[in-house]
Structures are given as C-alpha cells and as structure tokens.
C-alpha cells in the first residue's frame, strides 16, 4: 500500500512538465526512501534522474517497494487538473494496475480524484558512478535557459569551457559564431543572481544544444542550476527540488570521430 501526501503539489507538476518532452514513458520507483525516476530519452543520449525524498511528504507510507510504469503525457494530463496550490495525495495498492491522485484545494473546499492506468515498461537502469567533477558551475537557472535559447538560434552544438576566467559557451552556424561568458559573481545583492564557479582543472566539452535546451524546461523548479563537468564524461545538469530532492539530467558529450 502506498499513500503519499504532498502539500506542495505544484512541485510535482513542474517536475513532470520538465521531463515529459524528453521521455514519453517511465517507471516511478517508490520505496521507503521516496519517489525515484530514472529514464533515458529514446536515442539514449540523455538521462533523467529524479529523487523526491519521503521526508518531503507530509504523510508517507510505502509498505512494499513498487515500480509504477506511466505514460508521462497521461500523467501530465492528470496533474494539469490540479491547482498550483493544491495538496496532492497519491494512493496505490501493492498489486494494483492503477494509481489514484487526489487534489485538495488549500481551503479544503474542493476535492477531486483521478485514477491513472499503470503500464509495464521495460527500462534499463544505468549505474552512474560518483564522480569528482573538474568544474562545477552554479548559476541562475534563468540565465542558463537564456544562453541555451540564444545559442540555439545560431548553432546546433555548444562548446562549454570552464577556466579560471569563467565559463564560456561557444557555438557556430551558418549565421556566424556566438560566445557567452559567465563569470563568478558571489557579491550580487540578490542571492538568486549569484554565480559560483568551483574549478579544479580547466575542462571543455561539446554538447548538442537541443538537449541542453530541453533541460531548461525545469527552470520553474529552482532559482539556480548546477552544471558539473569532467573531461570525456557526461555533463550533469542539476535542479534542486527545494530541500525535498533533485532533478538531474545527464548528457553525453560529442567526441572527435
């Protein structure tokens, strides 16, 4: 039996909206540690890893670990019916083939419930090793989204290079070339405007812009995004889900043929 009551139900909508275009269906694994999701896009170039910890929930009961396979488009349809401030409660039986979502308005004057059909999904789980990253950049999520959008209008791939001077995003295409450099800024008046660069050694990697742009759909989740890079390894793009968990995206770099 699963029962999970999330006061900030709007958070769930933001998570699903952030990933539904990248991954069409996924298993949501539920255990005593909370909700976890790991899924790759159809081309197996990028991966989503999400964890919503059980202590994020006002009430959390999970008698037996279970895997709930869902169409994320259908899940998004259901969650669209929830108000942004609604309290969301998920309920499922151990051997059931449905999950029920209950939405309560903050004033408790409206209650609705939706039953979503579950499906069997074969998914491959990747073991992601703990990595000591050469460069970790924490920047405003809106700035990251803007850079991805601006550079996408010029080119298809971006070189992200982190040096002691800052982090440079470079692209080129038929129009010409574009460079955006983000420098460390820890003295901004507002904390949400700060950029922190932790550099152990310089690193430069090339990525397909369309995936990085897709990750920016998570912008409403957090004021900041963290890019973690190491030579010849996938970049990790992380959005914190407040103090309740995280949404991470991994993207394989392009390499010289």
């Amino acid at each position: 039996m699963l029962e999970a009551r999330l006061v900030q139900g709007g958070m769930l909508k933001k998570v699903v909206d952030a990933v539904k275009d990248l991954v069409t269906e996924a298993n949501i694994d539920v255990s005593s540690s909370g909700f976890q999701l790991q899924a790759m896009d159809t081309s197996h170039v990028s991966l989503i890893a999400m964890h919503l910890r059980s202590d994020a929930f006002e009430h959390f009961r999970c008698d037996r670990a279970m895997s709930m396979g869902m169409s994320l488009a259908n899940l998004a349809k259901v969650l669209k019916c929830a108000g942004n401030d609604d309290i969301v409660t998920l309920k499922a039986n151990d051997d059931g083939d449905t999950v029920t979502f209950m939405f309560e308005s903050p004033k408790e004057d409206r209650v609705s419930d939706f039953e979503l059909k579950l499906m069997d999904i074969d998914s491959e789980h990747l073991g992601i090793p703990d990595t000591d990253y050469c460069a970790t950049v924490t920047m405003p999520s809106g700035e990251y989204a803007r850079i991805c959008k601006d550079l996408s209008s010029i080119g298809d791939t971006v070189v992200i290079s982190a040096t002691k001077d800052g982090v440079k995003f470079t692209t080129s295409g038929d129009v010409g070339t574009a460079n955006v450099t983000v420098r460390q800024n820890t003295t901004a008046d507002k904390k949400e405007d700060q950029t922190i660069i932790d550099l152990k050694e310089p690193v430069a990697l090339t990525f397909a812009l369309r995936y990085l742009t897709s990750f920016a759909k998570a912008t409403p989740l957090a004021t900041h995004v963290t890019l973690s890079m190491t030579r010849e390894l996938p970049v990790m793009v992380e959005y914190a889900i407040q103090d309740m968990g995280f949404l991470r995206f991994y993207l394989a770099p392009k390499i010289e043929d």
Binding site: S46, L126, P253
Partner: peptide, 14 residues
Amino acid sequence: DEKQPTLKEFFQIR
C-alpha cells in the same frame, strides 16, 4: 568530425 556517443558508452547498465 564529431560523433554523438550514447550514455551506455560512459555508464554501465546496472
């Protein structure tokens, strides 16, 4: 020329 490897080429299948 650049090629786009999959994630499996970096991470192992668990």
